[in-house]
């Protein structure tokens, strides 16, 4: 058995309970991914409607529709993941305000309310002024809705890979990445060249920023805490290595390259491929980052 023993301690666990399983799996990945799109597109809509109010007037209805759909996907998967899903209402009647889950649930509820207000303003009342006013508040609320999952991860004390402020930055960048990618796909060829360029830049820079954070963790994380070192082993030759790099390639590297090429060649087609790649890759990279800290032995 000597070959299986860690050299430093010469110790091996023999009679023991099972190895840790994944408690938060693909359902939570779906949750985070859909939330990134649902809030991200609001950020981008706010930006475009402020900068190009005339040319982007048509996005108001599709933006709110897409956000409502993806926020409800996020809510659906949130509830489905609960082991006692029919007790979800406890969050509102027995709230515990130190929990990021409680804060997130309340913020998300307010966010959904504002989205329906925006839908009412643009679809029923045809009132763009009301829509734009509500959009300001919705954008503000989209920030904590985006970030609360980072808070939740940071509250997971010994899963050191999930930490603040890195997770906050990752969540915001993921929302900008997903929001710009969705906007690129939604807008078709209706956007003017400067708008396409702006969307490409948001996509490219958010991919760059997120990639930078992942690589910083990948290279330097292990030097900081033994939990991080042990967790990163799963993506440094471990069972999630391929998935990790597929995620990085699709979510960040490919969009960065394609955005550069599209700006150089003025090709909106390349931008669309970058957007699709970013959306697929974001799911994969989020999934890996969600799962690997759960494989760490805590006891």
């Amino acid at each position: 058995m000597a070959h299986e023993i860690i050299a430093a301690t010469n110790a091996i666990v023999t009679l023991d309970v099972a190895l840790p399983g994944i408690v938060w799996g693909w359902i939570i990945t779906m949750n985070m991914w859909a939330k990134s799109i649902g809030t991200g597109i609001i950020f981008l809509a706010f930006f475009l409607l402020k900068k190009y109010p005339e040319q982007t007037a048509f996005i108001r209805l599709p933006v709110v529709a897409i956000s409502i759909v993806f926020i409800h996907i996020f809510l659906l998967f949130t509830v489905v993941d609960l082991h006692q899903m029919f007790r979800f209402w406890h969050i509102f009647f027995y709230p515990h305000l130190t929990s990021a889950i409680t804060i997130g649930a309340w913020m998300a509820t307010g966010f959904v309310g504002l989205l329906f207000g925006m839908a009412y303003a643009i679809y029923i009342k045809k009132d763009t002024a009301m829509y734009d006013k509500l959009l300001g508040w919705t954008t503000l609320l989209a920030i904590p809705v985006t970030l609360y999952t980072a808070g939740l991860m940071a509250e997971s004390t010994a899963r050191e890979l999930w930490q603040m402020p890195t997770e906050s930055a990752q969540m915001i960048l993921a929302a900008l990445l997903a929001g710009s990618a969705t906007m690129i796909l939604m807008g078709g060829n209706k956007f003017s060249d400067p708008i396409k360029k702006d969307l490409g830049l948001v996509l490219g820079f958010s991919a760059f920023g997120a990639f930078l954070l992942y690589m910083s963790e990948y290279i330097f994380g292990a030097m900081k805490a033994e939990e991080v070192a042990a967790t990163l082993e799963f993506v440094k030759g471990g069972e999630y290595t391929i998935m990790f790099w597929v995620g990085q390639l699709l979510a960040f590297i490919t969009p960065m390259v394609l955005v550069c090429l599209s700006l150089k060649k003025q090709s909106y087609y390349l931008l669309k491929i970058a957007a699709v790649s970013a959306l697929i890759g974001l799911w994969v990279s989020k999934h890996v980052w969600l799962v690997i800290p759960q494989l760490l032995n805590m006891s």
Binding site: L15, A18, G21, N297
Partner: peptide, 25 residues
């Protein structure tokens, strides 16, 4: 817990495998 190797599979008395999570997972 990180100081010891914890292997999956059979040992003298047990077959160590992953925790059953239960429910819908």
């Amino acid at each position: 817990p990180l100081a010891s190797f914890r292997g999956e599979g059979h040992n003298l008395f047990n077959n160590l495998t992953h925790l059953p999570i239960g429910g819908h997972h």
